[in-house]
Design a protein around this nucleic acid. Structure first.
Lengths: 333, 333
DNA sequence: TTGTAAGCGTTATCAG
DNA sequence: CTGATAACGCTTACAA
């Protein structure tokens, strides 16, 4: 393995100069630089990253904790993070926290052991823990957040988004609108629920507790919740699901119950995953700027890593995308 | 930051002993070990991974190159790799090669720069390049493969799987069966195409070139291909798509053409992604043991890293899962 | 601008 | 079984 020494010898300069020529080009003469680069090329020198990381005490690697890689919503966010990281010469280590909720905690050790310089968390399960264990280590929260945020957060206005979704259904004439929420404890779910409630209340409709059920973002849970809702004596004429995968589960359940969408049931999802527009009927949903969320989170993290400006939360724009799964209610039964 | 020195001082031993007590516990007395562990705990020592990696010349990190993180099929494979890596104390760095085909090449530099000890490639775009650039660096191919494999491969029998899918359609009575293939150049596509052909030929059916079209595994491409096929003067009565996302695109296209599945068109997918069973109709497809493919690939890589046994290719079991999207053809039009 | 040289924290070698 | 000590390859004061 060729080292910086070989290059130095070949170029007839010191190792320090080689290091400088490579890392801080403007610190050396044009001529020296040329000579070093020549030498590098001619002996096929590749820097030993481990040595550099060791010396500089930074890994140029970040940790991304995601609850479920299989959810296309997160895939897109990861893509956003990835490409931004790539541009800034950072590597991304991925950790899934869904399988075994204690995982997040175990990943906390990553930071302590200096495997990564910072982290982006897409889930808050065990975050307090994570942050407590890693005092003053750069962490950014994306999508999910905490009531009192201990670190910068990138997200959309979930309350407003939920309000928009329900408002759309109300405009169409729906009065009996069910909501399939995500994990109840998460602030994100709380915000969306608030939006659902406030939209209903603004329309003078009493919120019925039995129309609010809880899933976990998976298609399986959406399916189960829809079965439950559709089995009611007076089933809802519309369902708002807190994730597209859940909405897809709802579609399946509706089909099995002989319930047509949107004729018998209107459906709104959340996230606008890539499959949403390919469903039949295509899914009305809240579009989240996924790649942007990812890249913004990464940028925030970079700021933290350079600990320059006091970072701040970002609230990005969402958008209600109206497709075929919503329509006017048709009185029936 | 506490180092091994602090621990040594606290335990009244040398740094060498601390290192041994931590890395090769059986090389020190029970008593010494205890004392060291005590010291470690009492001063909250965490090993500096960068230093260790530097010294040992290994990162305990592997690189996984995937064409498209957004395809749930790959997500599951990644999960398999992840969990296996986790168990063996390896970290996983993810790279996406879809965005800009030259990416794979750029990632090749990762290995040279010793960011990772080995790699698992889920795509062969630029593999030759990758491998050429990283002579005798451990690489495992999963899902995809090469005609003459330069490294161990983990996959299913794609020819057989395609044959199974088409055989199923033939049994139902279909004679005019279209095939939406993946990227034509890939050996995987070639194998599946071979299976499609041989199944047809065994049934004494002439293979019609116009019934073979090419997609790229995305729903968009499935949609476009289906539109093309359904616009034919004599459209096929069944379509076999080389990926579930493409099949989902086909469903959408069929719906738009007023073509019902399975009454007017039978459809078989490939991969059995999590959404397959939630489609309406639920999707008949080839199930691949995704997590298993991932974990097997990781295990193969671990073997390579320990360069012990001469590793070998693994061909795992696939399974035709018959759901609602296939049925007997109903003569019509 | 460039060279000298002292580490960074760990492991491996070699004596004891 | 344990200790002293020399690396590992790079960066960075400090000096020239």
């Amino acid at each position: 393995m060729t080292t910086i020494k070989d290059v130095a010898a070949l170029a007839g300069v010191s190792t320090a100069t080689v290091s400088r020529a490579l890392s801080q080009p403007d610190k050396v003469t044009e001529e020296t630089r040329e000579r070093v680069l020549q030498a590098v090329k001619s002996c096929g020198y590749k820097m030993n990253t481990a040595a550099r990381q060791f010396r500089r005490q930074r890994t140029e690697t970040i940790l991304v904790l995601v609850p479920d890689i299989g959810n296309p919503f997160f895939s897109n966010i990861i893509q956003g993070i990835e490409s931004c990281a790539q541009q800034h010469n950072y590597r991304v280590i991925l950790g899934e926290t869904d399988t075994g909720r204690a995982e997040a905690e175990s990943y906390a050790g990553y930071m302590r052991q200096q495997h990564a310089d910072g982290a982006i968390l897409l889930s808050v399960d065990g975050v307090e823990n994570f942050i407590a264990d890693n005092t003053n280590i750069p962490v950014v929260l994306a999508c999910e957040y905490l009531p009192v945020s201990p670190c910068p957060t990138v997200r959309i206005d979930n309350t407003q988004a939920a309000e928009d979704a329900v408002a759309h259904l109300l405009e169409l004439g729906h009065r009996r609108i069910a909501y399939i929420n995500g994990p109840a404890a998460s602030p994100l779910s709380i915000d969306r629920l608030r939006g659902y409630r406030s939209a209903l209340q603004s329309a003078g409709i009493t919120v019925e507790q039995e129309l609010i059920v809880q899933g976990d973002y998976s298609p399986e849970s959406g399916y189960a919740c829809a079965k439950q809702l559709l089995a009611m004596v007076t089933p809802p004429s519309a369902i708002f699901a807190a994730s597209d995968p859940m909405a897809i589960g709802v579609m399946r359940a509706a089909g099995e119950c002989g319930c047509r969408i949107p004729e018998d049931l209107s459906l709104v999802g959340f996230d606008d995953i890539r499959f949403a527009e390919f469903m039949t009927p295509s899914l009305t949903t809240i579009h989240q700027p996924r790649e942007l969320i990812g890249s913004t989170a990464m940028q925030q993290l970079l700021l933290l890593l350079d600990d320059t400006t006091p970072q701040q939360d970002s609230v990005l724009e969402h958008q209600l995308v109206i497709r075929e799964s919503t329509g006017r209610p048709t009185r029936k039964l």
